[in-house]
Design a binder for these strands. Structure first.
Lengths: 152, 152
DNA sequence: TATTGTTATACTCTATAACTATA
DNA sequence: TATAGTTATAGAGTATAACAATA
C-alpha cells in the first residue's frame, strides 16, 4: 500500500511545464537567446511594424521590460527599430534578414524539442494530448502563443 | 488560411504549467506559504525525521536554499527541528501538529485547484490526460512529487 | 496635458563562498 | 580533516517611479 495521495494532473502540468521550459531554454541559449526573446521574436514575425507599446500590450508585460528585450534583439541584429515619420514618438519594430533566418532555425529547434518531449507517446496519443491541452488552455483564456511568464 | 505554425504540445505544457503554478501560488499565498514551502512540507510529511542535507538532496536544491525554506516553516510553527543526540551536527525535521493540520488544508486546496484547472474535461478525459502526462514525466525521469523548480 | 520610449532605483530570489560547531 | 548547518555577499531578473522627447 502507498499512503501518498495520487499525483493530480495540475501538479503534472506544473512539473512538465517547468521541465519543458528548462529544456527549451537550454536549446535557445546556444543561439544566445532567452525564451522570452524567442517569444517576442514570434510576435514581431506575426505582426511586423508594431510599436513597442503595442508589443508590450500583446505580451501583457510592462513596457520597461519590453525595452530590455528589444535592446537585446537589436544588439544581436535580429530586429530593426524604424522611426514612424507620422508620429516620431513611436518606433515600428521589424525583423531583419538575420531575424527571418533565426525564425527558421527556431522552427527546427521547436520541432526537435517537441519530438524529444513527446518521445513516450505514439502519433495518435500525441494528437489526443494536444487536443486536450488546447481545450484546457482555451477554457482558461490563455492566448495562443503567449506565455504567461510575461505577466508580472 | 492561417499562416502561423500550429502550436505544439511542448509549448502548451509550458504555458499551462506556468498558469497552473501561478494559480496554485495565489491559493497558498492566502495561507502565508510559497509553492516551494508546500513542496518541502510534503516531503517532510512523507519521510519525517530526515536531516536537512537529506531533504536538500531529495529536492535537488542547494542546502543554503533549504535553510531559508525550513526557517520559514519553523517560524510559522509548521515544523520542528530536533537535535539528533547521537550526532549533534544534525537536525531531524518533523511536522508539528499545526503542520499536520496544514497538510489536510493543502489536500483540500489541491483538490479544488485540480477541479478548477480540469474544468473543461470530462471524468474520462481527465483520466486519459493524467495517464499520458504521467508517462511523459516518467520517461523524462521526473521524480513523482518533486518540482524541477528546486533545481538551479 | 498626454503618450512613447528610456533610465534610475529598489526589491526579490538564488547561488557561491566563507564561517561555526561538531565529529 | 570532513561534514551539517548557517551567514555573508553578489548576481540576475523584475517592477515602480521618475525622466526626455514628441504630440
Amino acid at each position: 500500500m502507498n499512503g501518498s495521495p495520487p499525483i493530480g494532473s495540475a501538479f503534472l502540468l506544473a512539473q512538465l511545464g517547468a521541465h519543458a521550459t528548462r529544456r527549451f531554454a537550454e536549446r535557445v541559449e546556444e543561439l544566445g537567446l532567452s525564451p522570452a526573446q524567442t517569444g517576442l521574436l514570434r510576435v514581431i514575425a506575426r505582426r511586423p511594424g508594431e510599436s513597442q507599446q503595442a508589443l508590450a500590450a500583446e505580451l501583457g508585460t510592462p513596457a520597461t521590460r519590453l525595452v530590455a528585450l528589444v535592446d537585446g534583439l537589436e544588439r544581436r541584429g535580429l530586429i530593426e527599430r524604424r522611426r514612424n515619420p507620422q508620429d516620431r514618438r513611436l518606433y515600428a519594430v521589424f525583423l531583419s534578414d538575420q531575424g527571418e533566418e533565426m525564425m527558421r532555425t527556431l522552427a527546427k529547434i521547436g520541432a526537435a524539442h517537441e519530438d524529444e518531449l513527446m518521445a513516450a507517446l505514439s502519433a495518435e496519443e500525441r494528437t489526443v494530448l494536444r487536443g486536450l491541452l488546447a481545450r484546457i488552455a482555451a477554457e482558461h483564456g490563455l492566448a495562443p502563443g503567449i506565455h504567461p511568464g510575461y505577466r508580472g
